[in-house]
């Protein structure tokens, strides 16, 4: 009886498949992590060591002075650009959450004439490639005299985004209608119902939308490149690029900058991982 159980637990077929599974996963993990690893070790080498043959898989010596060198550069205001990125990503995330949650609430929870038609149009907006509208939008912002500021980059996020509206609507649909009815009977205004009753039920979805928006904006390159003019205004994405194009030779400082750009996103993801699992596992895009 006991031997039976033990034998079954270590059934060879399962053991083998489990080993294969883990090997494959480790291999893929290694492939995906390699560039990241390369970036980090390069940040702690000198320019010559980076390209030395044979490849050095660990920096020797570890050049910690590269860190202070990055922050000391006058032609690469890293901290300033880091702050710009935080502001840019934060504002876009806030605007996206706010506007998309309002629109999604209306589409999912309120009844009004033409609702489905308007929703269909909203979804159609997903089909228009942003590059097509780029030039007219650019000209528009120029006429308004707002080129060279963050307005063209941030303001649009306060007017919703089709994908996030669609995603949030799915979550809002799962909130029982009776909750809102009860709040209506309790005398809450529509805005208060949205804010105090419905939003707390879809917290997970909001965190996910905020994260998507932050990561996307953090890496956003084309928009800031077109609209912003001065080095002091650039976010990190454009800052890193322009620094590299000025000084193509200084790889280690570039890599140090790239490392410091990537780390916040990794940390952010580690802290919010459970929301992703919760959100996608429970309701998500059903």
């Amino acid at each position: 009886m006991t031997t039976d159980l033990i034998r079954r637990r270590t059934a060879p077929r399962h053991l083998v498949s489990s080993i294969i599974y883990h090997c494959v996963m480790l291999l893929f993990a290694a492939i995906f992590l390699l560039p990241f690893y390369w970036m980090v070790i390069s940040a702690f080498k000198s320019n010559i060591e980076i390209f030395s043959q044979p490849i050095a898989w660990f920096p020797d010596p570890i050049r910690w002075e590269n860190v202070s060198a990055l922050f000391a550069r006058t032609d690469f205001p890293f901290l300033r650009q880091f702050a710009n990125s935080v502001f840019y990503a934060g504002a876009v995330a806030f605007g996206t959450c706010f506007s998309c949650a309002l629109a999604a609430y209306s589409f999912a929870c309120l009844r009004w004439r033409g609702r489905n038609l308007v929703f269909a149009f909203t979804i159609c907006a997903l089909l228009i490639p942003p590059i097509v509208t780029f030039l007219p939008t650019y000209i528009g912002w120029s006429r308004l005299g707002l080129n060279g500021t963050y307005w063209p980059l941030i303001l649009p996020s306060f007017f919703g985004d089709a994908f996030y509206i669609f995603m949030l609507r799915q979550f809002f649909l799962s909130v029982p209608r009776e909750l809102m009815d009860a709040a209506r009977l309790d005398g809450a205004s529509e805005f208060r119902i949205w804010w105090q009753i419905v939003l707390p039920q879809v917290r997970v979805a909001l965190v996910i939308v905020a994260l998507f928006a932050i990561v996307y904006t953090w890496n956003e390159f084309f928009g800031p490149l077109i609209y912003l003019k001065t080095r002091e205004d650039f976010p990190l994405s454009v800052g890193l690029f322009t620094f590299r194009s000025q000084r193509a030779v200084e790889w280690s400082i570039s890599m140090m900058g790239a490392t410091f750009t990537a780390v916040p996103m990794v940390v952010l993801f580690l802290f919010t991982q459970r929301f992703f699992q919760q959100g996608l596992a429970t309701k998500g895009l059903k």
């Binding site: 029982p176 009776e178 909750l179 009815d181 009860a182 709040a183 209506r184 009977l185 309790d186 005398g187 809450a188 009753i197 707390p200 039920q201």
Partner: peptide, 28 residues
């Protein structure tokens, strides 16, 4: 609805899930 002097009890209770019983009662 709130100005009619009616109160309703729903089949699925419809309590506000993120509020304590006290706050549920006090909300209105």
């Amino acid at each position: 609805p709130a100005a009619r002097g009616v109160a309703m009890v729903f089949q699925n209770y419809a309590l506000y899930p993120h509020m304590s019983a006290y706050d549920n009662l006090a909300y209105g």
